[in-house]
Design a binder for these strands. Structure first.
Lengths: 334, 334
DNA sequence: CTGAAAGCGCTAACAA
DNA sequence: TTGTTAGCGCTTTCAG
């Protein structure tokens, strides 16, 4: 835990010089620079990033806030965020509310106290109020995949969630399904976009005169399973189920197998997100994929433009959606 | 972005007093304390944690380093670490090498530069060399679930990986299997404990005169699937497969279905970790569960004892293992 | 009950 | 090519 003073003393020079040497700034003779580097090495010098951040008034750090990091959907996003941010020479703090929505406020607050330079917030990763406070405190924020009844509290990059539902509905309709179930995340704070997924889905079906049976879940496989059980217990159980995320769809698959139905011959199932696991269920899960890499890249681009006070930040177009047609959906049984 | 000076000026007092008021230290009159708090509020004061850390020489932060955060196994561990650490009043930095083992060195280095007070390192989250350097730099480290040929570079809490393999072998033996396949993570740096899982497994079987067919994977479902394909292509394909983690086991399930075999009637499959998904595969995956909450709690306890220079830190006993007997394993076909 | 002073480890002009 | 000086925002004795 040597400081630049320690090494300055040792080489008989001043701290400023050492600092310059260490950072490749100023013009020092190759000789002294070399000497300094070597001594630093010998003394096991480690820069103190805390001191540096204070002096520079830049933490070189951004944060990503999500609801729950053990959810692989967010895990995948966290991983790509970290990589892309590193490309910008910046560290990423990964934080989550642990599904405890109100805690998002404290979380965001703490991030501004830590003086992160920007925050990417996903729905459920912080309340609009907390976000507005953060922005007032001078921290840049961009909302990723948000959707709100009111205005979204910061520049936002995302997808068309209504379209997600519509795509799903059309797919099932094309396959001839008429009795259709829907599993959606309960319309709680921070999950408004699930509502839109459900809405797009229902609307398309209603136009065809189909009334969907709705059950609520909580974005986990467990809850999806429970919801599916409820659907299967109906007097006229659905021949197709759409869950507003893959985890719940996977739970639904489990319920269906347990009840002895076969997928997709008797019941079709589809989800949304295309998490890694979706390719490995039995049968492989039909789902809708958003281009998350694109979304992360764009939100980071926007965030950095904001941070560097670009005159005009242009928000990217909505991310594309792809139907990943796999084996869990098939023609409606006759 | 007001500082304590700004608010000191406003209330006509000195920064020290404001600091005390804000932190509930010293003895101020209730009146001024109240006044200060109020003004702070009005000015939208946010403490600067960077400055505080520098002054206190304590970052109040620890880190958890894992190979890949999008892997739900690590996601679950990260989530519980964060919760438990918060109980100690400390923030957790979640970092991963992104499967790029050599990067672990730079990662750990950066953490010491950030002056985290301690690091929990999981296998693949950092090299022994990097860990030793960190310790020399004064950062406490505890290794979680490690296993090495050489000495583990820091106090360690974990489980008996040989026993994992043995348990799996016994389970399959009891079910009458004799042609048995094994999918193990390639014996690369940072994955030595997979080797032990495999070894425990093979040893038990060898004692019974059974030679296992081994295929290597890379801890992903995709790689597990590929490995299983290889196993199934054997002249005498196995009637049971053990994969050294659940993700690979899930990949194996997918391969087996694709090839048209049925589980468990024709082929049994089991894994290790008991990730959330293991309960939702079809059929539900038999696996072995380590008590990760216990392990995380203990490693954090040890870490904090180290940080606070407890005279004698006692390492906890190895974590318990539980066979989670589910539907993916059954009697060997006759 | 409040203030003065020093310092945490580093950076950033500006001089010399 | 190197040194001086000031300061980042906060904490922490120790006085008053």
């Amino acid at each position: 835990v040597a400081t630049i003073y320690d090494i300055a003393k040792k080489v008989g020079m001043t701290a400023a010089t050492v600092s310059n040497a260490l950072n490749g700034k100023g013009n020092l003779s190759e000789a002294t620079r070399h000497r300094i580097l070597q001594v630093a090495q010998e003394m096991g010098y480690r820069p103190n990033l805390i001191a540096r951040s204070l002096a520079q008034r830049r933490s070189q750090t951004i944060a990503l806030s999500v609801p729950y990091i053990a959810n692989p959907f967010y895990g995948e996003i966290a991983a790509t965020t970290e990589v892309v941010a590193r490309g910008y020479g910046v560290r990423t703090l990964i934080v989550h509310t642990n599904e405890d929505y109100p805690r998002g406020d404290a979380l965001i607050d703490d991030l501004v106290a830590q003086r992160v330079e920007g925050i990417i917030v996903m729905p459920g990763g912080g309340s609009p109020k907390a976000i507005r406070t953060a922005i007032q405190a001078g921290v840049q924020v961009v909302c990723l995949e948000w959707e709100e009844e009111d205005e979204i509290p910061a520049p936002s990059v995302g997808i068309d969630f209504l379209e997600v539902g519509r795509l799903a509905a059309c797919h099932l309709l094309e396959l001839g399904h008429r009795r259709i179930g829907l599993i959606a995340h309960g319309f709680a704070k921070g999950y408004f976009n699930h509502r839109l997924r459900a809405q797009g889905f229902s609307e398309v079906l209603r136009e065809t005169g189909i009334e969907v049976s709705l059950q609520f879940g909580k974005s986990t496989a467990e809850s999806g399973k429970k919801a599916a059980y409820a659907l299967l217990g109906l007097p006229e159980p659905p021949t197709a189920i759409f869950a507003t995320n893959d985890l719940m769809a996977i739970g639904a698959l489990a319920a269906i197998w347990e009840k002895g139905y076969s997928v997709p011959d008797e019941i079709s199932v589809m989800g949304f997100d295309d998490i890694e696991m979706a390719s490995f269920t039995h049968p492989a899960l039909t789902t809708i994929r958003a281009d998350n890499v694109y979304l992360v890249e764009q939100s980071l681009r926007v965030l950095f433009e904001l941070i560097h006070k670009q005159e005009e930040v242009v928000l990217p177009p909505l991310g594309e959606l792809t139907l990943m047609r796999r084996a869990s959906t098939g023609p409606a049984p006759s």
